[in-house]
Design a protein around this nucleic acid. Sequence first.
DNA 1: GCCAACGTTGGC
DNA 2: GCCAACGTTGGC
Length: 157
Amino acid sequence: MKNYWLMKAEPAEASIDDVLAMPNATVGWTGVRNYQARNFMRDGMQVGDGVLFYHSSCAEPGIVGIARVASGSKVDPTQFDPASPYFDAASKPEAPRWLLVDVQVLHKTRNFTLPQLRADAELAELLVLKKGNRLSITSVEARHWRHILQTLGVAAD
DNA sequence: GCCAACGTTGGC
DNA sequence: GCCAACGTTGGC
C-alpha cells in the first residue's frame, strides 16, 4: 500500500531546482536529525511512495513539486563528517543513528503557498498546517494528496 | 530579529 | 522518571 509524505527542504540548501539539476533529479535526503522523522524513513516509507516537496524557512514557503521515494533508508554519511553542519559526534559508524532516503523529483509545480494551503478548507487537517508543527517529514492522507495534485494540475498516478 | 512551540538534555 | 533549562524550527 502506497503512502504519501510531505518533506521540507530549505531552498537555500537544496531547492527543487537544485534537485532537478542532479542526476536523475534525485537527491539523498541528508540532515534529518529528529527521531520521529528518521523512523518515518526507516519504518514507514517504501520505494514509490508519493512526496510533496515543500520549501520552508524562505520568503514563500509552500509545496513546489511532486516527488517520489526512490530508495530504501540508508546511513546518512553527513553524521560522520566533522565539516558538515549535520555532524553528530555521538553517532558511531558501527551504530549509525541517522538515516536518509533518496528522493526523486517528478514534477516541478507552481508554488502552492502556505497561505493558499491554509485557505483551502479541504486541507484543514493537513498535518503540516497544524499549530506547532515542526517535523520535517509528515505523512499525508490520500485524500489530501489527490486534492493537492488536482489543484496543481498534476495527473494522479 | 522575534517568539511560540516543541524536542532534547541532564541534574536530581 | 520528572522537569527545568536550553536549543531548534520556522513563520512572520
